[in-house]
Design a protein around this nucleic acid. Structure first.
Lengths: 246, 246
DNA sequence: AAGAGATATCTACGCTGTAGACTTTACCCG
DNA sequence: CGGGTAAAGTCTACAGCGTAGATATCTCTT
């Protein structure tokens, strides 16, 4: 029988014994340490790489140890998402709300590009948690944008509408950009040409000719212009300029 | 799974003509049949319910039989997404592009609400497939909107920009709406009140008072107003009215 | 030093996707 | 009709997953 119930021989490694805090290796786990390792795993190898066993391995702990810091894998995913959201800094006291929204949009974009594998989590996980039950970290951006807008003179109700239109576009843009994101621009254009050429000409007259346009996508510029469009529309809506009816 | 050790009774049909579909019980599978069953499964019980074994069971087939119709589970998910996308009908010949975009937005929303569990797929799966390699069904909306816009006088380049802003907002809105979607409005408000009250007052002065505003969310109206904002911005951008400020 | 409570581990179960070998079915052609 | 063949469907098996429950071990307080 290969089993060795009481055996210490499995611990024949040099020093498995965490002696009195003298061991730098096996510091006590904390939720922060666990989440940080989880994020590292996701950033490196994608969402599917975040398994209890792999995370345990990364932390040199039994997988079951993780359940002290999160009730289940889903909660771990939520924790990762929350952690990334908290990277986003908003200045709710900025008197120029339009410029602050623009800055925040770019900050959001940078954050998303820094953690592309987390974005699906950001847009997907909250679906299973009612807004009222989300952790403070996940609600802070909402709060701060509401603060920014009400401080700028919006009624709470309108602030909410603006927030929704704004965040809606932001989410959508970043999803779009990630879909077009590609490592090698040149290879991408070749791929696009080939791929689009395969489409039936009758049914896809427009797309087929646009490989070069699709290939050079500038996410930052696209976002900035989108925000401009949105802000223009908002401005017009909230302080309507008399426009000659047609 | 019904045990049928000796039974040939499943094949006791008098005749099985695959060409006519005369056999109701064990007609030949097709990719369409498989995908339809997969969609049914997802709609009923969510994405995680779509496993090879369960789908096999729903079709009264060995799970491995499915691999004749999709190379792996991921492809099955893509197929489900594509199938839902194809429900969306766009009229690229509509001369009034703004109204057509508005109609399409609402059609998109209805489609998403009809298959809420598929939405995460819609926004997430394409991330792993370069645009050039996507199946025609997934590219058709892009093509048709480009057609609509160029027919309306936009340059291909601008059409692409408009498409991106439009679809970006559309995706974002629907994600937002699904996050606020809830079965029981009254219970939701109670939950919101309780949930928001738990937040520290110093840090969340705005959110805490907005339970009632958050509770009555009208997705259709919100979308319509968002589209209006967007169209206003687009109009202004593309045919700038000389607006003498001051 | 001893007890207590937090922390980590071990074992096991039912589920998953899917590779590879196999059997059954449907259809074509002489 | 008979036989051959390719497609369709099945069977078995494996490695990996999340996690329940019992157990062991560490750490701190008294």
């Amino acid at each position: 029988m290969p089993e060795n119930p009481t055996g210490k021989e499995a611990a024949a490694e040099p020093q498995k014994r965490p002696g009195k805090g003298a061991s730098p290796k096996r510091a006590r786990l904390t939720r922060e340490i666990v989440l940080a390792a989880a994020l590292r795993l996701v950033d490196a190898d994608g969402l599917d790489a975040l398994t209890m066993r792999r995370l345990g391995q990364a932390l040199e702990r039994d997988p079951m140890a993780l359940y002290r810091y999160a009730p289940n894998r889903g909660a771990l995913l939520d924790g990762v998402a929350e952690q990334v959201i908290q990277e986003l800094v908003i200045e709710p006291a900025d008197p120029d709300w339009q410029s602050q929204l623009r800055k925040t949009a770019h900050a959001f974009r940078r954050m998303a590009l820094a953690h592309p594998h987390v974005v699906p989590l950001l847009v997907t996980r909250p679906l299973s948690t009612p807004l009222g039950l989300r952790p403070p970290g996940a609600l802070r951006p909402l709060e701060q944008i509401l603060g920014l807008l009400t401080r700028a003179g919006f009624s709470p109700e309108n602030a909410l509408h603006v927030y929704r239109a704004y965040y809606g576009y932001l989410y959508g843009h970043i999803l779009n950009e990630l879909q077009e994101l590609v490592v090698d621009a040149e290879e991408n254009e070749a791929l696009l040409r080939l791929g689009l050429h395969r489409l039936p000409a009758k049914e896809f007259p427009n797309l087929r000719g646009m490989a070069h346009l699709l290939a050079d996508y500038d996410g930052e510029d696209e976002l900035d212009q989108g925000i401009t469009i949105l802000l223009t529309g908002l401005q017009e809506r909230l302080h309507p300029k008399a426009v000659p009816a047609h």
